[in-house]
Design a protein around this nucleic acid. Structure first.
Lengths: 207, 207
DNA sequence: CATGCATGTAAGTAGTCACTTGCGTAAGTA
DNA sequence: TACTTACGCAAGTGACTACTTACATGCATG
């Protein structure tokens, strides 16, 4: 109908530039707060071109979120983490995940905010979170099976860890300086790791 | 200028009804997504009356958020929590806090979402979170001073706990059934309590 | 050269938005 | 009765919105 295929032109990046501009605008001003006019301007493109590529504003949002999520690389090989100590492996998992989140935190927060009114966007994000959840749960399960971790309600623990990870960048955005003060994410992450390790590890300490 | 004082009429609840409707609309559809027309309708009031009371849509938002936050009661007497065991006291604190949050979670999530573009709204929320943070930090500090809690980076630990509490309802909203499955907030909270207690308590177990 | 394709330009449509103005009315107060 | 206050109603204003239509341009491939 309004094909995103431009095989003729070497300048196929028009599509991508619009996506990028949409991501920017949407994540800063929300869906209703962004106008196709401004998005097109920021992409250095005529507004008509935007509609030729995406058909509607809503479809543009969906495409932008999908594109962002697709660029996220979820840690999937738990062997890497299992080969380290509980502290090191878990810490690496968390920071790997958090780093992914922070690179795309704008669009994720947008998606979350809009997911209530736009289920199609919510669907994209749900898939992403489910993927991470299953990997983390598998990691915990394996640790426990190997006798390196105490008995615990692993699904709930997994959920808790994810809530914390998602709550961290959200809170930072919300209360930038005063509440967060100089507490960087790094310190929060290391505290989380220490807490979980101290509570559940069955490994003996000391390298 | 456009006074909210109606001393003459016993029906001073017009003001309140508009606030309530605004809260409803804003928290469901966001600021830009809500129209003064609909808000007035839901309040059973003419749109003109809305402007006579609040002057502008933005001022209405500010008033609604402020009103909601004002109704939140922050746990302030840490003695109650200190008189219990670590597990019981901390658990009570968390569930007290979470309960407050959940009663007003709609407006809080709205405020968070809009705080980026509306600093006046952000200010209101920042004050609320700062209050809770200081109480929790004081609770931890006192526990530690009493030798009932291990050495730890208490400000960061406080921050972590708050991030988790705020992340929990947010995640529930975002990924309703699938990711959350049947894991209620209650179970997550109790897992948080168990984890923190297990990691930091110096009290002996058993009643 | 001719065809097709991606884009630009100009103009317009139908709707919504926050917000205003002017006037009428009911009720309470002096 | 005279005045004030709170509200409803009708109408309108100017700006902005997503989205469309019609036409022109330049570039690449056949």
């Amino acid at each position: 109908m309004h094909g995103p295929l431009h095989p003729t032109n070497g300048e196929a990046d028009t599509h991508y530039r619009i996506l990028q501009a949409a991501l920017d605008e949407f994540s800063h001003n929300g869906y209703k707060g962004s106008s196709t006019r401004v998005i097109a301007d920021r992409a250095g493109v005529n507004e008509v071109t935007l509609f030729r590529h995406f058909g509607s504003k809503l479809e543009l949002l969906r495409a932008a979120v999908e594109d962002a999520v697709q660029r996220l690389q979820v840690p999937s090989e738990i062997d890497t983490y299992l080969s380290m100590s509980f502290r090191e492996g878990f810490g690496k998992f968390i920071s790997d995940y958090l780093m992914q989140l922070s690179t795309q935190s704008d669009i994720l927060m947008l998606g979350f905010a809009e997911s209530f009114t736009h289920p199609q966007v919510a669907e994209v994000l749900k898939r992403f979170m489910w993927k991470i959840r299953s990997v983390l749960l598998e990691y915990f399960t394996e640790l426990h099976r190997l006798g390196r971790m105490r008995e615990a309600d692993l699904p709930v623990l997994t959920q808790m860890v994810m809530a914390l990870i998602h709550g961290t960048p959200a809170m930072r955005k919300r209360a930038p300086t005063e509440v967060t003060s100089d507490l960087t994410d790094v310190r929060i992450v290391s505290t989380l790791v220490e807490t979980v390790v101290s509570a559940y590890s069955l490994e003996k300490e000391g390298s």
